[in-house]
Amino acid sequence: MTGEADTRKRRVRAAVRAQRSERSEAARDRAAVALSAHLTTLVTQAGARRITCYLPTPGEPDPSQFLQWALSHRIEVLLPISQADRTLAWAYHSAAPPEVGLHGIHEPAGPRLPASAAGTADLMLIPACAVDNSGTRLGWGLGYYDRCLAALDPAPPVYAVVFAEEILPSLPRDPHDVPVTGAATPAGIRSFHIQTR
Score class of each variant (00 low, 15 high):
3 G>E: 10
4 E>K: 13
4 E>M: 05
8 R>W: 12
8 R>H: 10
9 K>N: 06
10 R>W: 03
11 R>T: 11
13 R>N: 06
13 R>P: 02
13 R>D: 04
17 R>W: 07
19 Q>E: 13
19 Q>H: 13
21 S>T: 09
24 S>C: 04
26 A>K: 13
28 R>L: 15
31 A>H: 02
32 A>P: 11
32 A>R: 15
34 A>W: 03
37 A>V: 07
37 A>L: 14
38 H>W: 12
39 L>N: 11
39 L>K: 14
40 T>G: 07
40 T>R: 14
41 T>L: 13
42 L>A: 09
42 L>Q: 09
44 T>E: 11
49 R>C: 04
49 R>I: 00
49 R>Y: 00
51 I>D: 01
54 Y>M: 09
54 Y>D: 10
57 T>C: 10
58 P>L: 10
58 P>I: 04
61 P>R: 07
64 S>N: 13
67 L>D: 02
67 L>V: 06
67 L>N: 06
68 Q>W: 01
68 Q>K: 12
69 W>H: 13
72 S>A: 15
73 H>C: 02
74 R>D: 14
76 E>I: 00
78 L>C: 04
79 L>Y: 04
81 I>S: 03
84 A>Y: 05
84 A>M: 07
84 A>V: 02
85 D>N: 15
86 R>N: 09
88 L>N: 06
89 A>Q: 05
89 A>D: 14
90 W>M: 02
91 A>I: 08
92 Y>Q: 15
92 Y>P: 04
92 Y>C: 15
93 H>T: 00
93 H>K: 01
95 A>V: 07
95 A>Y: 10
96 A>I: 00
97 P>S: 07
97 P>E: 09
98 P>M: 05
99 E>L: 11
100 V>K: 09
102 L>P: 00
102 L>F: 05
105 I>V: 11
108 P>A: 06
109 A>I: 02
110 G>N: 11
111 P>C: 12
111 P>H: 15
111 P>G: 15
113 L>C: 04
115 A>F: 01
115 A>C: 12
115 A>H: 11
116 S>H: 07
117 A>R: 03
117 A>G: 02
119 G>P: 03
119 G>W: 03
121 A>K: 07
121 A>D: 06
121 A>F: 05
121 A>T: 06
122 D>G: 04
123 L>E: 06
128 A>G: 14
128 A>E: 07
130 A>D: 12
134 S>I: 02
134 S>Q: 14
135 G>D: 08
135 G>Q: 08
135 G>S: 08
136 T>A: 15
137 R>T: 02
142 L>F: 14
145 Y>K: 05
146 D>Q: 08
147 R>M: 06
147 R>T: 03
149 L>M: 00
149 L>N: 01
150 A>Y: 07
151 A>T: 08
154 P>T: 01
158 V>P: 10
159 Y>G: 06
163 F>Q: 13
165 E>A: 14
166 E>T: 03
169 P>C: 07
171 L>S: 04
175 P>Q: 12
177 D>T: 02
178 V>W: 12
182 G>T: 03
182 G>R: 07
184 A>T: 08
185 T>A: 08
185 T>S: 12
187 A>F: 01
188 G>A: 13
188 G>F: 12
188 G>T: 10
189 I>G: 05
196 T>R: 15
196 T>E: 14
197 R>Q: 08
197 R>K: 11
